[in-house]
């Protein structure tokens, strides 16, 4: 099946099998390997991307369901060569250890901050519940999101 998906601002036409997951379309058909596959069972959030501005787990969306959608991956967050404020805050606060969960964490945080301008730590932790950091580096992640909220 042919699908048209706007990925990071660019319209992409892809020929997909209905059973292909969005994360596989992004990684294997479009070469956007910043989106990671972690648990592959809708739990860890490593594969989180923005679909029409909302954070979704791309291992639990079919490529065909994304036909006509607007997708943002970690590769599309930078504008004019500058990091997105959430990316910069993760850098500044060392909001990562191994880095595997980071793209998903950042995209969920972007969704969270578009809905909550001034979240407290509890709101941030509840908002990031669907993203697991197996290094358990949550403290700096929460600090980074808090700082990004102040700067956005």
């Amino acid at each position: 099946m042919k699908v048209s998906i706007k990925v990071n601002g660019q319209l992409r036409e892809v020929d997909v099998e209905p059973r292909w997951l969005l994360v596989h379309v992004l990684r294997e058909k479009l070469g956007l390997t910043g989106t990671n596959v972690g648990c592959d069972t809708s739990q860890c959030g490593a594969c989180t991307v923005l679909m029409n501005g909302m954070a979704v787990k791309s291992c639990t969306v079919l490529g065909v369901q994304a036909d006509g959608a607007d997708i943002t991956t970690i590769e599309g967050l930078r504008t004019d060569g500058a990091y997105h404020p959430v990316q910069q805050a993760f850098w500044d606060h060392h909001g990562l250890q191994c880095g595997f969960c980071t793209p998903g964490m950042i995209l969920t945080a972007v969704d969270l901050l578009t809905h909550h301008g001034d979240p407290n730590d509890e709101t941030i932790r509840h908002g990031l519940e669907g993203n697991l950091c197996r290094c358990t580096g949550y403290e700096n992640i929460v600090r980074a999101v808090r700082d990004a909220a102040d700067k956005m």
Binding site: G45, L112, G130
Partner: peptide, 12 residues
């Protein structure tokens, strides 16, 4: 609804 799954699950 706030108790269901997590943010990404609730979005979808």
């Amino acid at each position: 609804a706030t108790h269901i799954g997590d943010r990404q699950v609730r979005n979808r």
